[in-house]
Design a protein around this nucleic acid. Structure first.
Lengths: 201, 201
DNA sequence: GCCTTTCTGGGACTGAGTCTCAAGTGGTAC
DNA sequence: GTACCACTTGAGACTCAGTCCCAGAAAGGC
């Protein structure tokens, strides 16, 4: 927590500049039509520098200081709360604590994730809500190994809930993503919907 | 169903050749170390031709004649079967009906999906078990619109179950993928595991 | 001020993916 | 069989993502 030093501050600023300009360009011209050269030029650094900060063009969308908040909120839920409810509540409180600026950035990221499939895929992969990440978190919370079958399946269901939320937003744009996710998690508390409904006419 | 004609047969053979050689090269040298030129050369066609058959290098892994079988099996489940059980059973029967050759091809595809993240992501995206695809299928089976919230959430859970199965296989290589998936679907019939377990020590 | 460490810019290189055009091959009608 | 049409292929040029390397600039410690 000591003074970061000039060098470190410059790096943080360069990284933030690159992301800011990149997201703006993606939004205005589209992802494919924006080249890395364009982004580097807009941020007034060289192409080389771009790739030093972000391994790929997709990664610039992934830079994220929101995910840690969800995690912290989850760990802060009082002991004794049922697992699914704990997850649902931590999503809610973490999102409520975001600044307007962060929330706007989050919106753009989500838009891109929805409109550009590759980005959506990468985002899901590396996000807080990837299966193995949730499994690790949950394992810690309930005091079981992360290899436990129940833990992994629970984590899978949570990831699935997120996929469902994204799909619902995709079909009804304008619907707020986080609230939808929270809502879906609530639905699952009553068991898997439709599981017992008979198929056929 | 009439005679496909020489032209059509040639195309099918070229497509199959490209996939066969590509998967072999991927397995032997790795995905990144195999260039499209290598694949085209092995299949004795030009680079241009490769891209006429497959839009990207990843897509060559996705060519799939197995998915339709799952779908057909699902539609063939007797009316009245509970939805989750119907899905579980159709997975089982469809996989049992595969020829040894197809099953081996399926193995290689699954290996690649597991070891190369980008492929895994694309596979999940376009697979039979993508959320919107399952939602469409389920909507038809239970006679509800595909936009129904319950339908989408159910579809999300099924996709999540598949993610969990993949994760379990990843942590315990050698475990058969399809059987694991079927097993996970069975677990969900009793509700979401751990949902009510309290968090904290 | 000087020396070391770290960061940047420039340029060369590989490979994916797109496009265009000319030549080849299957289908078909006579 | 042959002549014509539609479709398919091969070749080459081009753009852009991503990697590598090296020389010079900037920051930190003394």
């Amino acid at each position: 927590m000591t003074d970061p030093g000039l060098r470190e501050r410059k790096k943080q600023r360069t990284r933030a500049d690159l992301q800011r300009h990149a997201l703006r360009l993606f939004r205005d011209r589209g992802f494919a039509a924006t080249t890395v050269d364009d982004i580097a030029a807009a941020a007034e650094v060289s192409r080389s520098t771009f790739f030093r900060y972000f391994p790929t063009k997709e990664d610039v969308v992934l830079l994220d200081d929101v995910d840690p908040l969800y995690e912290a909120a989850f760990r802060a839920v009082p002991a004794g709360t049922p697992l699914l409810e704990a997850l649902r509540r931590s999503m809610h409180t973490a999102f409520a604590s975001l600044s307007d600026e962060k929330r706007a950035l989050e919106e753009v990221r989500m838009d891109l994730a929805r409109s550009i499939p590759e980005i959506g895929a990468v985002l899901r992969e590396r996000n807080t809500f990837g299966v193995d990440h949730v499994a690790t978190l949950v394992a810690e919370a309930v005091g079981r190994p992360a290899t436990d079958e129940d833990v992994v399946v629970f984590a899978g269901v949570v990831s699935g809930a997120r996929l469902a939320a994204q799909e619902l937003v995709r079909r009804d744009p304008g619907r707020p993503y986080i609230e939808t996710f929270v809502h879906v998690l609530g639905m699952l508390a009553d068991g898997v919907p439709l599981a017992e409904v008979p198929v056929g006419t």
